[in-house]
């Protein structure tokens, strides 16, 4: 998929609105995650506005592509993207984390149509993704299954059970996207903190997926051209035996001067002033900040 300049600008504009919505939603609810959702914005926008075969008016369409947000703590980012894509009204974002809301702190498929799996406890999303891809093969359906993972959750052993099984069952119709922002809740890379060092030093995830004979594509996770080229390539070889791992290098808290690369923003609640500053930095007009 080759983007025209106008298309690229449109996606970048949407990404800015999503960043604002993430901050505004968490500021309003008084709880939520910031850093993880911000690193995944371009990946989610590219999926929901270009790559995924979906119909927001018919979220349970049986031939839709399946998408699982394995890093469930980025839920607010997914909700912002789904709202902009028309799955539900923007105003509903203000119910995030409120009692009775369809927008739970972590994605709940029993409440919000359009979610293909519940998630939150890390490391579990790829396995139901294997189930969807395996089921699609058995049903002779050509929908594709995408699972968005964080690099932190790769420390869960269950991920590698799924990685192994996906290759063994030759699930070329399964694509894992790694939002490799390199920062976890407790800031593994902090200097002078005991044994803290990069958990993947000498063991880059790209090489780990390759060791299980997955097709690995490494990209800049904030570059729409690279993201969409990788997603297109993944779908193109869906009939083949090798699942695809798109290792997307990202920045936690990407897009705002005060959140970028700062693990303190993993789940910090922004103030009204932070939201005002975000609107200014993102260059959004008053009609682009509806909430």
């Amino acid at each position: 998929m080759i983007l025209s300049e106008a298309e690229r600008q449109e996606l970048e504009r949407i990404a800015k609105k999503v960043r604002y919505l993430i901050l505004r939603t968490v500021q309003h609810s008084g709880a939520g995650h910031i850093g993880g959702p911000l690193s995944a914005v371009e990946l989610l926008v590219a999926l929901y506005f270009k790559a995924l075969r979906i119909d927001p008016k018919n979220p349970t369409w049986e031939d839709r592509d399946r998408f699982i947000l394995s890093k469930g703590h980025a839920a607010v980012g997914l909700y912002a993207v789904m709202a902009l894509r028309g799955f539900f009204p923007l105003e509903e974002l203000l119910t995030f984390d409120k009692g009775g809301s369809r927008l739970q702190g972590h994605p709940d498929m029993t409440r919000l149509p359009g979610l293909d799996m519940s998630s939150g406890s890390l490391g579990q999303g790829l396995s139901p993704g294997v189930g969807y891809a395996l089921g699609a093969r058995r049903l002779g359906k050509d929908f594709h299954t995408f699972v968005l993972l964080g690099d932190g959750e790769l420390q869960e052993g269950m991920v590698w059970e799924a990685v192994h099984t996906a290759r063994r069952y030759e699930l070329g119709n399964l694509t894992a996207i790694l939002d490799y922002n390199g920062l976890q809740q407790y800031g593994w890379r902090g200097a002078g903190r005991g044994d803290r060092k990069d958990p993947w030093e000498g063991l880059p995830p790209a090489r780990l997926f390759a060791a299980f004979d997955w097709r690995v594509i490494e990209i800049d996770g904030h570059d729409f051209d690279e993201i969409l080229a990788a997603l297109t390539l993944a779908r193109k070889e869906a009939r083949g035996p090798r699942p695809t791992a798109i290792v997307a290098y990202t920045l936690k808290g990407k897009g705002l001067s005060f959140t970028g690369g700062k693990h303190a923003w993993h789940s910090k609640v922004p103030s009204e002033e932070d939201v005002r500053r975000a609107i200014e930095e993102l260059g959004l007009s008053p009609e682009e900040v509806p909430l």
């Binding site: 790829l126 396995s127 139901p128 294997v130 189930g131 395996l134 089921g135 059970e161 799924a162 192994h164």
Partner: peptide, 19 residues
């Protein structure tokens, strides 16, 4: 295989497809 967590997760995906 000997990977029960994954087996349970795969089953969830299959079940939500109607199996």
């Amino acid at each position: 295989g000997i990977a029960e967590q994954n087996m349970v997760g795969v089953a969830a995906g299959l079940a939500h497809l109607g199996f």
